[in-house]
Each structure stands twice: as C-alpha cells, then as structure tokens.
C-alpha cells in the first residue's frame, strides 16, 4: 500500500478543486505509533494532512450515516461493504458519494505487536511486506502477514466492491481461508463450558461502548442499552447486563456485519467480541448463502423471504 498516500492527496485535491465534493473523509497521521485519526478535509490546500498505511483500521463508513454533504470517502474492502449496507439501509444516498476504492493488504494488530516486543514501542514504520518496530533499546523487523489484525488475516474481500475510482489496481484476494475455525471450536464445547468461555471473554468489559460506537452498523438514535422508558438492561457492571449488551449488539449486526474488525480494534481492554458477530455471519452464510454488503442491488437475508429458507428451528 506504499504510494497510496500521494495518490490519495492528488485525488482529494482534484475533487475539492473541481468542487466535485464538499468534503473528503480519510485519515491523518496519528500522534501514537500504530494509530491514525479519521479526519475530513474541505480545502484543497489541506490535503497534505491525508495519509494511508497499515494503521487505518477504523471503518470510515461509520462517519457517513445521515450526512447531507457530497462526500468523497476512501474505502477499503470492508469499508466499501459497509457503505453498500448504508446505501441499502437508506443512511446515505449513492449520489452523495464519490467512493475512492483502496485495495487493501490488511491492517496491523497493535495489541499483538505490543505483546511481541519488550518495552514501550516508540516508532513503527512499514514497507510493503514488513513492519519495523522501534523501542528505546531495540529494533525488530516483523513480517506483516504475521501481525495482521485477525479479521484482516481472514479477509476474503480486500478489494472494494463499489467505487467511483481506485487508488491502485486491485490486490490479489486471499483464498483457501477457513474463516470459522474458532467458531467451530466454540460450537463443539459443552453448554457449561460455553457459558464460562463467554463469561471469561467478557469479564474485562467496562461498558465504554467503544465497540458499538466504532461500528458503522450501530447508528440507532437511541441504543437499547441507553433506553430508559422502558429500561431493557441494567446499567451497572453486573455480568448478566454486560452479556446482554454484547449478545444483543451482535444480534443487531446479524446479516449486516462485514467483519471489518473496528469493534475489536477499538476495545480498550482487548475483548474479541467478533467471536459473537462471526457466529452470526457464519449462520447467515451457511443457512442463507448470504454475505453482507456485496452489492446495493441485493436485499439482505433478513428482509427477504424465499420459499427454500431453512426452517428446521421452527417446531
């Protein structure tokens, strides 16, 4: 993905100069290693702040819902699928968007990298296939493919599914990926073990809702956990309330989740809540042959009826 930054600045500058769009949504360089900050640019002279590298894991589609401007947006494979979902769900008009496709070779996992080196990481730089990590007393060279966010390592839609122009030629899609090995493992556990597994998984949760808020799918004006009339769920740290939040959040993403990984990336305490959303993704895939956000012309699995829909669960 080296060289994308320059190309993006050119594209953004051109679109703003031509007044083709009111704003460009992208990333600017972060103040921390392995972090970039989503930002918008409205003036051609400001496009120099835009950057692209392997630290753009936040899903930019999240910044589109209900906006009224004409917007250019940089979209990785997953972002583009969430843009499709937004269009299908009437959160934004296709005509409002100029989608600049970004063929993606994956985002790196800052938590994993932090765990692989001793001491505080002061600087991280990258080439096409390697990641160089600098601490105060050592430099470590890592293979990018070993330190990808897990959702990127399992990704089978690296290229945007919808775009008006592309930053670069499409990249090779990954094949022979077993997306659900971990999910199968959980499915095979005994009931009690499953309960305990999720108790343990969710125990660090502080209910900051970063997972929900980083998710482009979570745009309800009032989330069910925030409702007070009626109040569906307790607001404290009771594990049942915590679990209710995570379970229902996952359900609300059923058939919509693109496994962009923004939730897991955003979590300040490192919970892999994708173990819940991916189970629902797997069910949608297996039972309805459905993958979310591949085309704005398809209606989602959960809002169509087909005569051959599976119904074994109805007794």
């Amino acid at each position: 993905m080296s060289g994308y930054t320059e190309k993006m600045r050119d594209i953004a500058g051109r679109l703003l100069k031509e007044c083709a769009v009111d704003m460009v949504i992208g990333f600017r360089k972060g103040t921390m290693p392995m972090m970039n900050e989503p930002c918008f640019v409205t003036k051609p002279e400001d496009v120099q702040s835009l950057v692209w590298d392997s630290n753009c894991g936040i899903n930019l589609a999240n910044y589109l819902a209900n906006r009224k401007e004409k917007i250019a947006i940089f979209a990785k494979g997953c972002d583009s699928r969430n843009i499709v979902t937004h269009i299908t769900e009437n959160k934004i008009e296709r005509d409002q968007l100029h989608i600049v496709g970004v063929p993606c070779t994956g985002m790196i996992d800052k938590r994993k990298i932090t765990g692989m080196v001793a001491g505080e990481i002061l600087e991280v730089s990258e080439t096409e296939n390697t990641i160089k990590v600098k601490t105060s007393d050592a430099e470590t060279l890592l293979d990018k493919k070993d330190v990808l966010q897990q959702n990127c390592a399992l990704c089978i839609h690296r290229n945007p599914v919808i775009h008006d122009e592309m930053v670069a030629d499409p990249v090779q899609e990954q094949t022979d990926i077993d997306r659900y090995a971990e999910i199968h493992k959980i499915e095979e556990m005994e009931t009690e073990d499953k309960w305990r597994f999720f108790d343990d998984l969710l125990s660090p949760c502080i209910r900051c809702y970063a997972c929900r808020n980083a998710c482009p799918l979570c745009y309800c004006p009032t989330c069910f956990v925030d409702e007070s009339k009626p109040q569906w769920v307790g607001k404290g740290q009771d594990p049942i309330d915590v679990r209710t939040f995570h379970l229902l959040r996952a359900y609300h993403c059923a058939g919509r989740c693109t496994d962009c990984g923004a939730c897991e990336r955003a979590c300040p305490v490192g919970i892999n809540m994708r173990l819940l959303t991916r189970k629902l993704e797997k069910d949608c895939q297996e039972q309805f042959g459905w993958e979310a956000g591949l085309s704005p012309d398809q209606r989602p699995a959960l809002d169509v009826y087909k005569a051959n829909d599976p119904e074994a669960f109805i007794k």
Partner: peptide, 28 residues
Amino acid sequence: DDVAFACLNCGTCTFSCPTCWCFDIQDE
C-alpha cells in the same frame, strides 16, 4: 468540529481517566 470529527463518543477516555468523576444514579 475538526477536533471532534473522529470521536466515537465512547467512554474510553472518561472511564480510564483518573480525574473524571461523573456518575449516574439508577434504581434496580
């Protein structure tokens, strides 16, 4: 607007902050 654009409005900053003191009162 520029400062706030990226913000997700999650509670990470306030919950991790040693000086943030706001609370809500709930009956259960």
